[in-house]
Design a protein around this nucleic acid. Sequence first.
DNA 1: GACATATGATACCATATGGTTCTATTAAAG
DNA 2: CTTTAATAGAACCATATGGTATCATATGTC
Lengths: 119, 119
Amino acid sequence: MNTSLGTGTGTGPGTANAAFKALSDPTRRQILLLLAGQEMTIAEVVDNFDMTRAGVKKHLALLQAGGLITVRKRGRERFNSLNPSGFSTVSQWIGFFDGFWTDKLNALQQAAEQEHLHD
Amino acid sequence: MNTSLGTGTGTGPGTANAAFKALSDPTRRQILLLLAGQEMTIAEVVDNFDMTRAGVKKHLALLQAGGLITVRKRGRERFNSLNPSGFSTVSQWIGFFDGFWTDKLNALQQAAEQEHLHD
DNA sequence: GACATATGATACCATATGGTTCTATTAAAG
DNA sequence: CTTTAATAGAACCATATGGTATCATATGTC
């Protein structure tokens, strides 16, 4: 098997690395779950955590860098909402291993059959 | 919608948090890609990186804590191989958002249809 | 047993990370 | 225009993290 799948090692925004980094923090994953319910301004997100605005803001910036959320401006508000692209990146990366499992299971099954031949 | 899906905030091994943490490092993701090809001893993994044994060992320990690999002992060697369970945890968590996209797309489509009514 | 090999484990260091406080900007409201 | 609300950004701090060097342990080989 050979694919063009890399590790997403690049440091820039929009890379697989940025997405995985963004997902590595529990607070950020919680924010994503919140945003799955509805888009929210920063202040609204803050209301759901025992943390300062600046703290939440940094998390949102990382989520955005990871391509997991997008920010829409309206007046002085910033509406944060989920962005499929980052999820897609991660999903694809994880999905690469799916083939591995089925291959492995097939091999196990074949091995088991071989064993039976020797019974 | 309501599910029992959490953030996997627990700190112990085998939690979603440990899995996401393990995936957050490029070197560790590269190791996983390596192990997708074949199981490897620590020394073999080390050969693929410009890093000390101890460094690689720490990465392997984190991958194990995240449930992404398992280690089989034979003599003085340790064979590291991929473990589906960690991947499954992550896959499920990401999968939670799949429903969100389709819901959103449906809403967009409905909105578009409403727009057409006003043309 | 002596020696080499594969791993385990600890202490240590530089930097990254998650969080705070404080200050600045921008837009709505009176 | 002054005031208030929502956000942006920088400086700062404690701890986590990725890496190294070093020493200890266990297994294979002669």
